[in-house]
Amino acid sequence: MQHLGDEELIFRFRSGDGPPQNDPHLNELFRRYSERVAAWCWRHTGDRELATDLAQEIFLRVFERLDSFEGNSRFSTWLYTVARNHCLNSVKARAVRKEDALEPMVVEPLDVATPSAEQELIRRGRVDEMRRLMRDELDATEQRVMVMHYGEELSLDAVTRALGLENASGAKAFIVSARRKLQRALERNRGARKGGN
């Protein structure tokens, strides 16, 4: 049984009969992933009861939809996507929204006389510049904190937990340092542009 791939287990389960809870292939699939899902849910919640609820919901969702699994991707990536979305949505829904006081990011204002089509081009250029700066200026942890906080909209507490940050102020310290680095880089670039003109 252990030599079979996940997708093969699903195929054999589908080909079999009898109650699914007695199916050895489905049981093997559950055995392979229950600890991973448990670890993932614990990591995002830090609470045994909540992690158990989330992990059960993830398995329920996956098993209920097992007939829609077409094998275009691996079972593990499918399970990951369900676990990822379920945990992040749940953490967001439970988060108490509190705005952390951070120094504002100062960006170059647009010239009011600039035509709107040009403004859009400038805006896109600035987004690209910011993307580049994030990769060039920030360390790996800062980048992840920025993506989780601004992209996934997780609270700083949730980011701290998800990334297992053990420093005193958690994700906030990384956000503060990342924003400062980006601000300095923006100013440097702006200075270089002005110098070039």
Binding site: F13, R14, P19, P20, Q21, D23, L26, N27, F30, S34, Q56, F59, L60, F63, E64, R65, L66, D67
Partner: peptide
Amino acid sequence: RERLLSAAPG
């Protein structure tokens, strides 16, 4: 486990 597995379709 049994309850979760029994959710499998069909």
